[in-house]
Amino acid sequence: MKNLKSLVLVGWAVALTASMQVSAEIGGVQSLRGAEELDSNNAAEEMKRIPRDRATFERDYLHQPPLIPHQVRGYQVDLNSNKCLSCHSWTNYKTSGATKVSLTHFDTRDGQQLSDVSPRRYFCMQCHVPQADAKPLVDNSFKSVDALSAD
């Protein structure tokens, strides 16, 4: 009886230390950072490149801000100047061959139309972003609405 008791105790102790060891690690759970333990870093991914120019992207839903199909490195947008509008504004789009900003860009949040791009649409990159050549990290099965999908 006494022997059995000590055996159980030893068993407990072993189990406890083992479980303590597991809880300090990731417990075998895989995440986006792979199977790397918490206290170490995985190797950095290579920097992704943004192609200089490519064909415009298909849109996935009706009010999606279209993705930017070109590089925007060094494009200054601030109080002084707006590089995007030097090509995309209604006065410049013809010479630059860019899509002109749509009418919604002149509306305030109360639906009032202004004579120039509305302040809430001035900082283009809040909504429009360029795309690097990168695979999605997580698969998904999103399908566009009928009006936008080819099939």
């Binding site: 060094g74 200054q76 002084n80 100047s81 030097s86 504004s89 006065t91 410049n92």
Partner: peptide, 16 residues
Amino acid sequence: GIAHELPDMEGVEGWH
């Protein structure tokens, strides 16, 4: 503006 920040571009041809 390829090498420095731009000043206020009001009135400069081709800018907003």
